[in-house]
Amino acid sequence: MFHHISRSYRKFWERQTAERNNMSLLVDTFFTTNANGHGGDHRTAQIAELIGKANLEITPFSRTLLKSAQSRSIAALKAVLDPATWQFIAKHHLKINSAFRSIAFCGFQRQLYQRVLQQHTGTKVLIWEATKNYVAPFVAAEQHFKVIAFPHNLEALVPDQGAIFENFETEVQALVKADWVFCISREEEWLLRTKGANAHYLPYYPPQLVLERFLKVRAARQNMTNDRFLIHGNAKNPPTRNGMIEQIEWLKKARETFPFEVDIVGYGTEMLKEYCESADFVVHGSVTPEQLQAFLTSAKAALIHQVPTSGALTRIPELLIAGIPVIANRNASRSTSDYAGVYQYDDWIELTELMSRSLKCPEMLDRPVAHEKRVIDCLQACTSPS
């Protein structure tokens, strides 16, 4: 009898494990779900949270890393010499240039996606965040996978970032190939729809652990004197750094009209010291999560300024939830201009006027419930038996 119960229990466990595996999605992302990470990590965590709400499991995409120059060169040569690479390009009419590097990248990524998708034992759905790898939806279609894309940016519109992609046309061609595309901005949703993509809007809203941290800041700010402006960002990122440099030059002009103090914090911001001659512009460089929380708690307002690029689409919602007014130029504030607590400017004169105001605590940002439900419904529809 004992053996009979053991066999029955083992079969039950095997059946439960198989069912869980069958409901596991293959998630292809460059980022983690680290609550103390950057905006890319937080967006990935938001997506993972929605997958959990759909009662689905995650299988991470296992990416091959070639660490030596020799191994990369050998892999590139093999990819170019492989007839399947050229057949793949011709079959899907891929709009890539004829340079060795481009052909090698396409061929290597085709081999990688083909192998990982074939080995996946869960449901045939690819959550595609790593949209720099434009070959993914074409390989997925050959493997009969459904593709749900969550582009963090339109990569071709982000300057000087070193991403490996062909051009805007290639990127759009790949996103159109996906079954669903959930965009982080209204502008990208509109643009991709005009090209034929099944695009929808999923605004960023912090995942639970990140949300809790910013709510603590909001509560702490009620008992603090907020008298210093805050600039926060990753200055190692070229578009962010260029925006910060232009912002500092505009702030120097504003400083001639009324006194104020600015704290500049974030990874790589040490390189901005040469632009900050005034003692009222204090560059702190990289800070710990605890130190950042202190800066957020004491900030009068956050100043965000970008050259034309992808916008501050994760940072602004987080700052508003923390109860911090945001003064941003229109490049940075796209898709958030209707949020309470966002103040937009086009030149240094408008920036100066906004900084001189007494800005109240923003209203709590509403959770985008309808947009989240659309994603959850999509996930469940794509994984339900046909």
Rank of each mutant, 00 (worst) to 15 (best):
Q109R: 12
S337Y: 00
I349A: 01
I316V: 05
T314P: 00
V27H: 14
P206S: 09
F2M: 03
V307P: 00
L202P: 02
Q173G: 09
A84R: 15
R357P: 08
A48V: 07
A370P: 10
L215T: 09
K124F: 10
N153E: 04
G266Y: 06
Y343V: 00
D377W: 03
S337Q: 07
K253E: 07
E187V: 04
D280K: 04
I148M: 06
R101V: 09
L351C: 03
S356I: 04
A76H: 13
W180D: 06
L379P: 10
V262G: 06
L56G: 13
H200I: 01
Q173A: 13
K53S: 15
S333M: 00
D160Q: 14
L272H: 10
V116A: 03
T17V: 03
P83W: 05
H144Y: 06
A136P: 07
A332Q: 00
I264M: 07
I264Y: 05
Q119C: 02
P239M: 12
V139W: 02
A104G: 09
S102K: 04
P289W: 07
A75K: 14
V287Y: 08
V282K: 06
I324P: 13
R334N: 00
T44A: 03
K373G: 08
R7K: 15
E363S: 12
F105I: 09
Q143D: 03
A149W: 02
